[in-house]
Computed example of a mutant assay.
Amino acid sequence: MNNEKGFTLLEMMVVMLIISVILIITIPNITKHNSNINTKGCEAYVKMVQAQVQAYQMEKKKLPTSLKDLIDEGYLKEDSKGCPNGKTIIIDSEGNVVVEAGNT
């Protein structure tokens, strides 16, 4: 019988158990922080759009009526529809960028 070096089945099962426990602990933390990341991303996006509204107002001497005005004039990209968390943003009559309250 050859004396070959290698892992036994028991050693491999212990390693798999340890890896599984680590995954069970880390995956819920990642998903919990995902909503926080999306919220922060939405806040940053709103600030960026607000800056574009101000640039539009300084250049055109009027407020944009919607995001479409900013997209048409090249202040925002064509695919700029809303926040990373799926919420829609709007420009109110005073030029403030807000997250729509009715959208989840």
Rank of each mutant, 00 (worst) to 15 (best):
Thr31Arg: 05
Ile91Cys: 07
Val21Gly: 11
Gly95Cys: 00
Met48Gly: 13
Val98Asn: 09
Ile27Gln: 01
Gly74Pro: 10
Glu94Arg: 07
Asp92His: 13
Leu76Cys: 05
Ile71Lys: 08
Val21Phe: 03
Asn96Arg: 08
His33Phe: 09
Val46Ala: 13
Lys40Asp: 02
Gly95Trp: 12
Gln52His: 10
Asn38His: 05
Thr31Asp: 06
Pro28Asp: 01
Lys77Gln: 02
Ala101Cys: 12
Asn2Phe: 07
Asp72Thr: 08
Leu23His: 02
Gly95Arg: 06
Lys68Trp: 09
Ile19Pro: 13
Val53Trp: 10
Tyr75Leu: 04
Gly6Val: 15
Gly6Ile: 08
Asn36Trp: 10
Thr65Ser: 14
Ile71Glu: 14
Met1Thr: 06
Asn2Lys: 06
Gly6Trp: 08
Pro84Cys: 15
Ile91His: 13
Asn38Tyr: 12
Leu63Val: 13
Lys81Trp: 12
Thr26Phe: 00
Thr8Val: 03
Lys87Ile: 06
Ile19Arg: 14
Thr8Met: 00
Pro28Lys: 02
Ile91Ser: 06
Asp92Lys: 09
Ile71Trp: 05
Ala101Gly: 03
Leu63Pro: 15
Ser35Asp: 02
Asn2Leu: 07
Lys60Cys: 15
Asn85Ala: 12
Asp79Ala: 13
Thr88Tyr: 08
Leu9Lys: 07
Gly82Asn: 00
Lys47Glu: 06
Ile19Ser: 02
Leu10Lys: 10
Gly41Trp: 04
Met16Thr: 01
Lys40Ser: 11
Lys87His: 05
Val46Met: 14
Glu11Leu: 04
Val53Gln: 03
Ser35Asn: 07
Ser20Gly: 01
Asn38Phe: 13
Ser93Cys: 06
Thr31Ser: 03
Val99Ser: 14
Ser20Phe: 00
Leu9Met: 14
Asn2His: 07
Ile22Ala: 06
Lys62Ala: 14
Thr26Gln: 01
Val14Phe: 08
Ile90Glu: 10
Met1Asn: 02
Glu11Gly: 09
Val49Cys: 14
Asp92Phe: 11
Gly86Gln: 00
Ile24Asp: 08
Gly86Val: 01
Val15Ile: 01
Ser93His: 11
Ile19Trp: 10
Leu70Lys: 12
Ile25Thr: 12
Leu70Trp: 13
Lys32His: 04
Asn85Gln: 11
